[in-house]
Amino acid sequence: MIRVVLPPHLRALAGVGREIQVSVDGTVTQRSVVDAIEAAHPMLRGTIRDHQTKARRPMVRFFVSEQDLSHEPLDAALPDEVARGREPFWILGAIAGGRR
């Protein structure tokens, strides 16, 4: 199982805790992990990436083991630690508040 840490607002929206688990068939990539998240929690569709283009939303970032993978290709294999469930795939909202 793939471990995923969601940001607080998406936890509330999906009604889940800090970390969820999803299963992925085939290569574990950003695309396949988010596919699995959206399949398990349809209310998160459109909140992490664009419905059409599948591009990551601009103020959402992806991290693994303290490394920012946000700008890696969508179909690049994620680190083996994620595929083996040893490390979670982190989805973060940018620190950009305060204006309102």
Partner: peptide, 8 residues
């Protein structure tokens, strides 16, 4: 709506 997670 939010800048982070879009339209809900």
């Amino acid at each position: 709506a939010s800048d982070w997670f879009g339209q809900i």
